[in-house]
């Protein structure tokens, strides 16, 4: 399995080598094009900034108020019934809003239970098979100026739920 980690290290250098090498073969003015493209990156980031500020304030308020802990405490009977560890409920919920907040919770779980425990393995698999629903929705639809999102949220929730259930089953089967 280690060669996959080894392989992961190669992805970005390989992409650079492949694309830059290929551009030399096709006689493209590589550096000029790179600079031109890098300029677009600035525009994209500054377009996102206002949205990001708004979202992170809302998440910060929810996190610091204790509303998320309250929610996982209230839902504990349900998570017990579903054989889902209530310790992982806050991170599963936070991951829907913010991936950096989820990362800090992930490191908390690794510290508390260890990455090779049942919880540590399960949370690793959940985080690698789900995305930040509300963040992605907000950023994409706000940037496009679309306010009526129709069935997108429902579809995103269903697919995230499927990924989470699959993670629990796989963790129990494999380890």
């Amino acid at each position: 399995m280690n060669f996959i980690v080894y392989l992961s290290d190669y992805i970005i250098p390989f992409l650079f080598f492949y694309i830059i090498g290929y551009s030399l073969l096709t006689k493209t003015s590589t550096y000029d094009e790179f600079i031109k493209g890098a300029e677009d990156g600035f525009k994209v980031v500054f377009d996102i900034l206002p949205t990001l500020i708004g979202l992170m304030i809302a998440i910060g308020i929810l996190r610091s108020s204790g509303a998320l802990d309250l929610l996982s405490g209230t839902l504990k009977p349900i998570t017990d019934f579903l054989h889902f560890p209530s310790e992982l409920l806050p991170i599963t919920l936070v991951k829907m809003f913010s991936s950096s907040a989820a990362t800090s919770l992930l490191l908390d779980i690794f510290k508390e239970y260890g990455p090779d425990s049942y919880l540590g393995r399960l949370v690793s698999i959940i985080l690698s098979s789900t995305e930040t629903i509300f963040y992605t929705l907000a950023v994409y639809f706000m940037a496009a100026g679309v306010s009526k999102t129709r069935y997108t949220l429902a579809g995103a929730l269903v697919s995230t739920l499927a990924g989470t259930i699959a993670s629990v089953l796989i963790t129990q089967l494999v380890f």
């Binding site: 094009e33 790179f34 600079i35 493209g37 890098a38 300029e39 677009d40």
Partner: peptide
């Protein structure tokens, strides 16, 4: 910017 440059 690194990525959008490479993508360009």
């Amino acid at each position: 910017s690194m990525w959008t440059g490479l993508m360009q």
